[in-house]
Design a protein around this nucleic acid. Structure first.
Lengths: 202, 202
DNA sequence: TAAAATTTTGAATATTGATTCAAAAACAAT
DNA sequence: ATTGTTTTTGAATCAATATTCAAAATTTTA
């Protein structure tokens, strides 16, 4: 049943890939809704009509580019699982792998709307201030804890961001149907997060 | 210079608030780009024209509703800072507060595009599968580590999600201009995250 | 090289949804 | 009740793009 792929088919495959890469790039940079089909086409010096020859519609482009990114990430991370190393090493390597994937592709599991892309500069700076102020509410106790020695870290800023990032992700995966009550859940999550700062058991 | 607010002005204030709340709700539920001004208006049994009487444009609605949410969150979290408790207590309380705020408002620091909102059901389920597969790559070593006793947690799923959430947030705040090299950075971050699982110092 | 198949083009169409606005309705003050 | 002010309405406008499509260009095949 296997057909030999003709030259043409190979070419077509390549073109599709190119388009997907370009699309992913632009989507990541400008956000899905703000990119036009022309943006994508322009990136490859084609016209939008051409893009439609390869892909059904804009949504298809988003979908397939997401699949591509995910598959690409999966490939490398799966290799790690097969290595002959301790679970801790394995996890650490996977984390590093994922982090580098994120940094390089600038694209995570979910697409973001960055407000700075829609707001005016004044609006943007106001939001920025508020977020800073909010962040400070975590920085203060962290700094205090470092002073008094209950927290151990050389990167308070990084940890702060990790804490906030981990929490904010809740919006996506928290389900109120779990076993735990809201309070219990919040309490446990807070404990796990706190562990990032507290190394010794008291 | 202070003017007594007339009945009318009070009413107007209230209406504005109502609209902002409604807008925030719909934005959170459907995502900014997918909500129309009519959606917002309908939520309050008004017509879109009316909304324009109170707000300049859609963007303004997004901006002001974000400000509202942020300010509301700030209010409660700031109180915690003034309490007479240890830094660790303070941080924990703040974390819990933030977590509950997130759960209740279903809105974090950034707006996300949830694929389930744009994709067809088939597309959605494919993406879902891939993400699951990806997540598993972290679950396996975590489970293994729990078995062998190097990891301590009763909530591997939660921790897994926290790890991924924290990492994915990188996309938003990581700057390549920091002191650390990419590798160093990834390594440190991974170490902090690992702390969530490893309680004892070896 | 000619015919057939594939790919590209860009203008035309379609749709969606934001924004405007003049008129109507509701309201407040005298 | 009358008049002036505020608010609401919904139809009309406007703009931006996604999408289509027939014709032109290109490539492959024989």
């Amino acid at each position: 049943m296997k057909e030999k792929p003709t030259l043409r088919e190979l070419k077509q495959e390549k073109k599709k890939e190119d388009i997907l890469r370009a699309a992913a790039d632009v989507f990541i940079e400008k956000g899905y809704y703000r990119t036009t089909m022309e943006d994508v086409a322009a990136k490859l010096f084609m016209t939008k009509g051409s893009v439609y020859y390869y892909f059904a519609d804009k949504q298809d482009l988003l979908f397939q580019s997401q699949v591509m990114l995910l598959k690409r990430g999966l490939l490398t991370i799966k290799e790690i699982l097969n290595e002959e190393i301790s679970a801790k090493e394995k996890l650490k390597k996977s984390l590093i792998q994922h982090i580098e994937h994120l940094i390089n592709e600038r694209s995570g599991f979910s697409m973001l709307i960055k407000p700075e892309q829609d707001f005016t500069v004044e609006q943007e700076s106001i939001i920025f201030e508020l977020r800073e102020e909010y962040g400070k509410c975590f920085d203060f106790p962290i700094e205090e804890g470092i002073q008094t020695g209950i927290f151990q870290t050389n990167d308070p800023k990084i940890v702060r961001n990790l804490l906030l990032g981990a929490m904010n992700s809740l919006v996506q995966w928290y389900s109120p149907n779990g076993k735990k009550s809201k309070q219990e859940f919040a309490d446990h999550v807070a404990d796990y997060l706190l562990r990032m700062l507290v190394v010794d058991t008291e």
